[in-house]
Design a protein around this nucleic acid. Structure first.
Length: 461
RNA sequence: UCCCCGAUAGCUCAGCGGUAGAGCGGUCGGCUGUUAACCGAUAGGUCGUAGGUUCGAAUCCUACUCGGGGAGCCA
């Protein structure tokens, strides 16, 4: 008999017929006359109840089941007389595939703290929370590809190893095959020429610059892959290894980019609400009772658009006491971003046109010569979920900005070339994948929305 | 990296100078178409690590480790 997934069983129009189901035991309740076994196979949040009567030859095996055991069950799908589920399986046979010692199996049929579950990352996918998280995460990833593909974007695989040592987005992990206990040196300096790539190499902090190359040929492209930051960041929204989506759009200026970002986020939220209603109801119940309302609200509301200068004015006139006073030219602090998106405007806010001094060299300079065409999308609870800009397409201006920032023209000659040979206005942004999953689920710590989190001092599993 | 808080049974926590506790989970028994089942019994801890103060430290002090919240960096 072919195995049925639990999700498909609950989707059936009516009961009846033999089924084969396989999964892991969540909990078991037994008496002399009957045993109830709840099993999950990860296809859905909902457990399937297996009923094994005393007369069944498998009853002894069933009554000894403990949380975590794996089982294979054949039986008849019937309407459940009990409360809490539509169908149940009246077992004809039950086979234990794998035992699970109850003395040492760490998961119990009760709620565990996310901190504890993180320590047993090899078993936490079996919990309701992490199963739901994995399905939502999958759904968001699928929606990212679907949205961009339907708009004609090409998926570009940009390199994970890069030799550019100054992408400007933070500290990088170095990649080397040199023996760190015996580093070859010449007059006290490391001989990088004998290293694997013949020069220093690093893990990428962004695929943007390479994505720009393909945007200058294929028009609309995106990258979606792992990104690495060696910052010593210890917060609930930073990881050393995370995933990022980076659309790059040719013939597009900043206003077009903000529209793309807004449509994109709305699509992702709508997709998850549509495809993962049970998992979202779970998160709404146990993690953040406003998350579904927030996502629904996003689908139906306009994102607010303000310039940095307007944001500064808004903050100064707010009457709020901020720890860091607001003056034009400073970078907005978390408390300022939170005030804007959570208190003042109460929905996503797109802030544009930041002072050039606090933004990257590749962002397009405005005519005022003081601000650049940057854009940050701020959302409640998370803060910055998207950072992007219109890129500087004028070679002379870009060169001047690189010189100001101390960026080598030689190393980025290829990046400058794009401005010499058929340059066009273009724009792009980076969306933090884990931050998006955090925002969607309402789970507060980013370590709990990625299967195996990498943070300073921690790279387990 | 900085500031604040925490670490006691497998899990979640109480105890805060005088012989280590509860609930849940585990085990044994009972009972019931049960559903975080229920009832009874029972086992289980060098109180994060290392020092110090004290007649006496889980409790007070110091350092370290790990975790949480916040900040910076950013996605």
């Amino acid at each position: 008999m072919q195995r049925s997934k639990i999700k498909d069983i609950f989707a059936r129009e009516q009961s009846g017929g033999d089924v084969l189901v396989q999964g892991w035991v969540k909990t078991r309740r037994s008496s002399k006359s009957v045993t109830f076994v709840q099993i999950t196979d990860g296809s859905t949040l909902q457990d399937l109840q297996i009923v094994v009567d005393e007369s069944n030859p498998s009853h002894e095996a069933a009554s000894g089941l403990t949380t975590g055991c794996s089982v294979s069950v054949e039986g008849v799908l019937v309407e459940s007389p009990g409360q809490g589920q539509k169908y149940e399986v009246q077992a004809s046979s039950l086979t234990v595939l794998g035992e699970s010692d109850p003395d040492s199996y760490p998961l119990q049929k009760k709620r565990h703290s996310p901190e504890f579950l993180r320590e047993i990352a090899h078993l936490r996918p079996r919990t309701n929370t992490f199963g739901a998280m994995a399905r939502v995460r999958n759904s968001v990833a699928y929606a990212i590809h679907t949205f961009l593909q339907e708009r004609g974007f090409q998926f570009i695989q940009t390199p994970i190893i890069t030799a550019s040592d100054a992408e400007g987005a933070g500290s990088m992990f170095q990649v080397t095959t040199l023996d760190l206990n015996d580093v070859p040196k010449d007059a006290g300096k490391v001989k990088h020429e004998v290293d694997f790539f013949g020069k220093p190499a690093f893990l990428t902090v962004s695929g943007q610059l390479e994505a720009e190359i393909f945007a200058m040929a294929l028009s609309d492209v995106y990258t979606f892959g792992p990104t690495f930051r060696a910052e010593n960041s210890n917060t609930s929204r930073h990881l050393a290894e995370f995933w990022m989506v980076e659309p790059e759009v040719a013939f597009c200026q900043l206003d077009g980019l903000t529209e793309l970002a807004e449509d994109f986020l709305k699509y992702l939220c709508g997709h998850v609400l549509d495809k993962c209603p049970e998992d979202m109801a779970f998160f709404n119940k146990f993690y953040d009772d406003s998350t579904i309302a927030t996502l629904e609200g996003i689908a139906n509301s306009q994102f607010e658009r303000i310039t940095y200068t307007e944001a500064v004015k808004m903050l100064q006139e707010s009457g709020e006491k901020f720890e860091y006073p607001v003056t034009w030219g400073i970078d907005l602090q978390s408390e300022h971003e939170r005030y804007l998106t959570e208190t003042k405007i109460q929905r996503p806010v797109i802030v544009t046109d930041y002072p050039k001094g606090i933004k990257a060299f590749y962002m397009r300079l405005n005519d005022d010569d003081e601000t650049v065409r940057a854009m940050d999308v701020l959302v409640p609870r998370i803060g910055e979920i998207i950072g992007g800009s219109q890129r500087e397409e004028r070679r002379e201006v870009l060169e001047a900005r690189m010189s100001e920032s101390g960026i080598s023209h030689d190393e980025y000659s290829w990046y400058l070339d794009l401005r010499s040979f058929g340059t066009v206005p273009h724009s792009g942004f980076g969306l933090g994948f884990e931050r998006t999953v955090q925002f969607v689920t309402g789970v507060s710590n980013i370590r709990d929305v990625i299967p195996f989190p990498r943070t300073p001092g921690s790279a387990e599993f």
